[in-house]
Design a binder for these strands. Structure first.
Lengths: 233, 233
DNA sequence: GTAGTTTAGTGAACAGTGTTCACTTTTCGA
DNA sequence: TCGAAAAGTGAACACTGTTCACTAAACTAC
C-alpha cells in the first residue's frame, strides 16, 4: 500500500496508476456537477465498477481523494492567473486581467472553489497538515497563487502606479480577500450579479470588472493627505 | 404540528415554546463550538434528554433548525453593523467602524458565518426559498445588512467624500464582497493574519483595519483621469 | 516452474447519520 | 368524563465512511 509518489514504471505500477486515475476522473465528474455531498464512496465505486472497499487501496480516505481534486483545481487556478499576469500587455491591463481571471476561474468551478475553503481552522494542533509558517505556505498551490498577487503589487509599485507606502504582502492579502469574497458571493448568493434594484442587465463579468477596477483604484498612488492614513503593519 | 409563528399565550403554547427554545439553545451551544458536522440530531436529543424523533415535532428538518441559527446570527450581525454605522462620530470613522464590525462579528462566530454561505446556488428552480428579486432579498437579514452598506456609500457620496460616479449599489456589492472575503479567509485559512514573510506580530484587528482603509480609499473621489475607468453598469 | 510473499479486490459488518411511522402517553377543551 | 389533539417514543429504513478477515491474482526468488 503506497498511495504517494513512488516509481511507477513497471507494468503493475502503470496499471495501478490507470485505476487510480480512473477513480479521480470519476470523482471529478461527479464532484464538478454535485459537489462534496453528491460524491459518496459507494456511488464512486459503482461508477468505476469496483467495490467500495477497493477505493481504500488507492486512497486513505475520502478526504484525501477530495484534497487531490482541490489541489488540482488550485494548480489550474494558479496557472491561469499566472498566465494572464504575464501576457504581453500594459501593466494595468495585465493587473486587471489577473484579478478577473481569478474570480472567473473560481466561479466556473463553484464546487471546487467552495470546497477548497470549506475546512475550518482548529485552534488546537489537531491538524498538523496546515502550513504554519510563511515558507511552508508558499509551497502550496494556494501560496503560489498568492505570490502572483504579491509580485503584481510590487511591479505596480516599481512602476510608480501603486502606492509605495503599502506593504506589498499586506496589499496582496487585501486583494486576495476581495477577490475571494466576490467569488464566494457569486457562488453562494443566488443571482448575486442580478441583485440590482432596477433589475439591470449587468452580467457577472461586468461586475467582476467593476470590482477589479475599484480594487486597483485603492492601490493607486494617492495625495499625501489620504495615503498617510494607511498603516502598513 | 405548527412550527411557525402562531399565538403562544396558552400554557401549552408557552411550554411548547420553552422546549423549542431549549432545542435551539442546545443546538447553538454545540454549533458554535463544533459547527454543522458536530451537530447531530441524536446528540442534540441526548443533550436535552429527549428522543431524536421528538425534535421533529418542533422542526421539520435539521436544515430548518440550522437555518434558524444562521438567521439569528445574521440578525445580530446586521444589528451590530447598523449600530456602529449610526454612532455619533465623523463619517469616515463610522464608515471604517462599520466595515471592521462586519468582519469582526463574522470571525467571532466562524461556524455561523461559514455556514451562512455554505449552500450553493442551483441553476434549476429546485430551491424556491431563494430570494430571486431585489425586493425579496431586501427583506432578508442578509439584505438588511447589505442595505447598511448602500446607505453608507450614499452618505459618503453626499458628503463629497466618495466618488459620485460610482453606482451606490454596485459599490456596496463590491464592499460586501471584500468584507466577506476577508472574513472567510480569516476563518478558513489557518493563521491568515500571521501570513507574513518576516513573521511580523500584526494582529487580526490590525489587518482588518488596513483592509478597511484600503477599501475606503478605493471609493474616494479621484482625479478625472482615473475615475473615468470605472464603469457603473 | 514452483514456492512464498506481496498486492488487488471483495463482501460483510460496524458505527454513525437524517428521517419516518406506528404506537403510547399525556394534555386540554367541550 | 369523554374524545380529540398534541407530545413523546422506539424501532426501523436507507444512507454514509470505514475496517477487516478473506480470497484471487500477480510478482519475486530460487
Amino acid at each position: 500500500m503506497q498511495t504517494d509518489i513512488p516509481v511507477e514504471k513497471t507494468p503493475a505500477g502503470r496499471r495501478r496508476k490507470r485505476v487510480r486515475d480512473s477513480i479521480i476522473a470519476a470523482a471529478e465528474k461527479v464532484f464538478a456537477r454535485e459537489g462534496e455531498s453528491g460524491l459518496s464512496i459507494r456511488r464512486l465505486a459503482e461508477e468505476i465498477d469496483y467495490s467500495p472497499s477497493a477505493i481504500y487501496k488507492y486512497f486513505e480516505s475520502k478526504e484525501e481523494l477530495i484534497d487531490q481534486l482541490k489541489e488540482a483545481f488550485f494548480e489550474r487556478l494558479m496557472d491561469r492567473v499566472d498566465t494572464s499576469s504575464n501576457a504581453d500587455r500594459p501593466f494595468e491591463d495585465r493587473a486587471r486581467a489577473c484579478l478577473i481571471t481569478y474570480v472567473e476561474t473560481a466561479t466556473n468551478r463553484p464546487y471546487h472553489y467552495a470546497a477548497a475553503f470549506s475546512s475550518i481552522e482548529q485552534k488546537d494542533e489537531c491538524t498538523p497538515a496546515a502550513p504554519k509558517n510563511w515558507d511552508e505556505f508558499m509551497t502550496t498551490n494556494k501560496g503560489k497563487a498568492f505570490s502572483v498577487l504579491v509580485n503584481m503589487v510590487e511591479e505596480g509599485q516599481a512602476l510608480g502606479m501603486f502606492d509605495r507606502a503599502l506593504e506589498p504582502v499586506h496589499a496582496a492579502k487585501s486583494l486576495w480577500a476581495s477577490l475571494h469574497g466576490l467569488a464566494q458571493l457569486v457562488i453562494h448568493v443566488p443571482h448575486f450579479e442580478r441583485l440590482i434594484p432596477d433589475d439591470g442587465s449587468a452580467t457577472t463579468t461586468d461586475f467582476i470588472t467593476f470590482h477589479a477596477n475599484l480594487l486597483i483604484r485603492g492601490l493607486q498612488a494617492q495625495p499625501a493627505s489620504v495615503a498617510k492614513d494607511i498603516k502598513t503593519g
